[in-house]
């Protein structure tokens, strides 16, 4: 390596683009309709939640235990690789969740995109979405409402794969004997959410 090559290496260059330049990328991408999946991370009493939305609506709520990177990779594969951190689109979701955790909201009004689920799973989620604040159904109940009372295990699997927990309240589905059953975010969080709604198990 000679002087010239050393000089070239020694030139100072910025290590990162400025924040406002990066923010400009996100803003322009949103404006031009290039963001198929926008996401943001938000604080909650259950740890940092990952929220992701398509232009249609909220498509994913993920717990820390789900692994945010793994969830984003999954969204890139199943929805679109145009996944960008663009918190503005998640503003309503963040606000409604905050209100829910603070006890000021019992129902979510934000638009959903449930395109990650179909068929029986989708009907199970629809049945679950209709369970009101502070109420509970059994796995058998939601299986029946979804059209197949005997498919209790399939209903459990569908709820375990609920892409939008909390908002579609799968924590309100319990076992017939009153047992907790399972939960995508861990039983600790299921207990917390039920407690928030006045039920102690």
């Amino acid at each position: 390596m000679d002087d010239l090559e050393r000089d070239l290496k020694a030139q100072t260059l910025p290590s990162e683009p400025p924040q406002e330049t990066l923010a400009g990328v996100t803003e322009r991408a949103e404006r031009e309709g290039l963001v198929d999946v926008a996401y943001a991370t938000v604080d909650s009493p259950m740890g940092e939640l990952l929220l992701a939305a398509t232009p249609t609506g909220l498509a994913r709520v993920a717990y820390p235990v789900n692994g945010h990177d793994a969830v984003l990779a999954d969204l890139a594969r199943r929805l679109s690789p145009r996944v960008l951190e663009a918190p503005a689109r998640l503003e309503q979701a963040r606000r409604e969740l905050d209100e829910y955790f603070e006890g000021r909201r019992q129902e979510f009004e934000l638009p959903l995109d449930l395109s990650l689920t179909r068929g029986f799973s989708r009907r199970v989620l629809d049945a679950t979405a209709a369970i009101g604040f502070g109420e509970q159904l059994t796995y058998r109940d939601v299986a029946r409402v979804a059209g197949s009372e005997r498919a209790v295990r399939a209903a459990g699997n569908a709820l375990g794969a609920n892409p939008v927990p909390v908002v579609v309240p799968c924590h309100r589905v319990l076992r017939s004997g009153g047992g907790l059953g399972g939960y995508t975010g861990g039983l600790e969080n299921k207990r917390f959410l039920l407690g928030l709604e006045g039920l102690t198990i």
């Binding site: 290590s15 990162e16 683009p17 990066l22 990328v25 999946v37 996401y39 990177d69 984003l72 990779a73 969204l75 890139a76 594969r77 690789p81 145009r82 996944v83 960008l84 951190e85």
Partner: peptide, 15 residues
């Protein structure tokens, strides 16, 4: 290999 989320690519190489 599947395409990673665009944000990951951007974060890795933007500098």
């Amino acid at each position: 290999t599947a395409l990673p989320p665009f944000q990951t690519v951007l974060d890795e190489h933007r500098g």
